[in-house]
Simulated scan of single mutants.
Amino acid sequence: MRTVSGTVKSTSTQWLPILTNILPPTLCRKEALLRKTTKSDKTKRSLLYQMLRNKPNLRLKSRKLPWTTAKELALSNFEGTKEWRENWTSTDVKNSGLVSDPNKGVEGMDLPRCMVRT
């Protein structure tokens, strides 16, 4: 994400997902992992499904394997937007009270943009 700069002070990085109405990167990665593993479960002929059935042994105990993370997310009924809302209400970001629900776009997001033709 690019930093949106103001006239006096640049925008803090915690506000960037809110202003762009895009989930934070950590939640996007979790949703993508969950989508990929559920899709592979539905298609039994896929290579990923075959690899997940024959899981390799754990090499390093310090590493958390993606399929264990995906299984935990599936068991907890993970929803990125719900978790984002909970994280936003419990955060200590300056002026976070201005936005009650980060999943809704901020006021003015639907304004028409200037189309410059060259």
Rank of each mutant, 00 (worst) to 15 (best):
L48Q: 07
L60H: 11
C28W: 00
T118P: 12
L58I: 10
R117G: 14
W84G: 00
D110I: 05
R63M: 08
V106L: 07
R85W: 03
K55D: 13
R63W: 06
W84L: 01
T81N: 13
E72Y: 09
T81W: 05
N103F: 01
A32P: 02
S76N: 11
R53Y: 13
M109C: 13
Q50G: 15
N54D: 11
V8L: 13
L58A: 14
P25T: 02
R85G: 04
L111P: 02
T26Q: 09
R29M: 01
T89S: 15
L23R: 01
L98W: 09
Q14L: 03
K71W: 09
L27Y: 02
V106H: 04
R117M: 12
L16V: 01
E86P: 05
W15D: 00
T89I: 12
L73A: 11
L73I: 06
N57E: 08
N95C: 11
V8Y: 13
T68L: 09
S90W: 08
A74L: 14
W15S: 00
T3S: 03
E79Q: 12
L19K: 00
S40E: 06
A32W: 04
R45V: 11
C28M: 05
L111T: 11
W15Y: 04
R85A: 10
R35M: 13
V99M: 03
L111W: 07
R35H: 15
L33N: 02
I18R: 00
V93G: 02
L47E: 12
P25F: 01
E79Y: 08
M1V: 02
R85V: 14
S40C: 08
L48W: 04
K71G: 09
M1E: 06
S62K: 12
T91Q: 11
D92P: 03
W88F: 12
C114L: 13
A32F: 05
N103G: 09
V99Y: 02
L34M: 13
